[in-house]
Design a protein around this nucleic acid. Structure first.
Lengths: 110, 110
DNA sequence: TATTAATATGATTGACCATTCATATATTAT
DNA sequence: ATAATATATGAATGGTCAATCATATTAATA
């Protein structure tokens, strides 16, 4: 496994804002304003993230008047869905952790 | 999807060193020195990462004399394997990217 | 019990990057 | 052509955390 690929992949997918944006696109294509509404992330921030996701090939974009409509890459969609499953399974693990672990995670993860 | 879980999950798995450590444990259980050799990561750094992975429940540890033997969590093992598959599929995407994207990724991802 | 080997821990620091704010560009409508 | 709406971009900054170094702990062996 190459470091560059790994970093690119996790850079794109491993940020909660970007992950939220990708998640919001699973159901249907959205324009930027709709993504803002769906995620609660501020507009320029959303645009920055979309720029990244576009460059990394995780989403596609097309113009529609003065809107821009974003869609999620097909393969990425499947990956996201799977990862949601993993995190969900991992949730049990967190819950079953002892108090020390919980406080550690809270401290480290913010 | 809760932010705390997401962050804990990707914190643990989304770092290349930690991912390498986890990967090294897929084949068989290893003590710290063996992990150092397998990954090329410096010892104290490995210990720091193992501390994190232990707290997050991604690995387990048992003593054997003055060694400590680490094993990867069963579910995590499967997740890691899957993610290797995703990153591998994503590799094609990176390759198919245009030059601009590649330079962007190199720049942003280091 | 001193010494060596294996591993862990604490503190520091430098790099990265998400967010924010201000502003630019593009498109449509008046 | 001007205004309004939608989106993008540039720059600045504060927080996070991986890596490093020094040192501590634990266990085995002489």
């Amino acid at each position: 496994m190459d470091k560059l690929e790994f970093k690119a992949f996790f850079y794109a997918i491993g940020d909660y804002s970007r992950f939220s944006i990708l998640s919001s696109l699973i159901g249907r294509d959205l324009n930027v304003s709709e993504i803002v509404d769906a995620t609660g992330i501020e507009q320029s921030n959303v645009s920055h993230h979309l720029h990244c996701l576009l460059n990394c090939g995780f989403v596609n974009a097309k113009r529609n008047g003065n809107e821009r409509i974003y869609s999620i890459n097909k393969e990425v969609k499947q990956t996201i869905s799977s990862i949601i499953g993993y995190v969900d399974a991992y949730k049990k693990q967190i819950i079953s952790c002892n108090v020390a672990n919980k406080s550690y995670i809270s401290r480290v993860i913010k």
